[in-house]
Amino acid sequence: MPCVEFQGVSKIYSRQSREFFWRFLAEAFGGKKAAPLYALSGVDFRAESGEAVAVVGRNGAGKTTLLSLVAGLTVPEAGRVSVEGRVSPLLELGAGYHPDLTGRENVMINAAVLGLSRAESERCWDRIVDFAELHDSIDEPVRTYSQGMIMRLAFSVAVHVDPDILLVDEVLAVGDAPFQSKCIERLKEMKRQGAILLCVSHVNPLLREVCDRALWLENGRLRQQGPVEEVLVEYEQASGQLSAIS
């Protein structure tokens, strides 16, 4: 059974290169340690099979960091992340795609990277192209594609690898309304089949129709957790107040 669980998870932003070496030396010789900036701080939650959880919050609240931890792309500084099941992340449009290769070639690479064998990739092939509606341009190099086309392709591959856990990070907005509806229908179907969905999105229908629960992250802390309608109402009120003040 797929399952995602965070127990007291904290993640610190890594201070980047240029000063890295000098600060490392300074600290090694007893210099003052710089106060760490927390991307996530003491986050606890659990998602079970068949649940769709929305992750909301301002930009920089830690949403993508949370999804990265679920995908196993990085490790927390404190706490425990337990994930069971095959994860299919959609964190960036066309991550790992090479612009000079065709859609077909990129999809095969994408499928292999997500863990499919050659036989499995070839079996899903037709369904992937059908869902993405890209029959005409599938053999053109990806640099000729629009953002929307890349999103269709990436989304199509991500859902057809039959994942146990699907992570969607703000990519749906790029698609046109009909394709968004198609995606939402497909996400609902995956939920029925027992997958776990974690969605970061500003696309309201996605959040309200697909997701049951929501996590509200604020500056790395889990401010609220609960049924999606409740949390969204609070969240929108808070954001509305902020924009009213400015």
């Binding site: 792309l73 994860v87 991550a95 790992g96």
Partner: peptide
């Protein structure tokens, strides 16, 4: 050279 792959996909 494969930064985007490593940052976004668990390989």
């Amino acid at each position: 050279a494969n930064a985007s792959l490593i940052k976004r996909v668990p390989v």
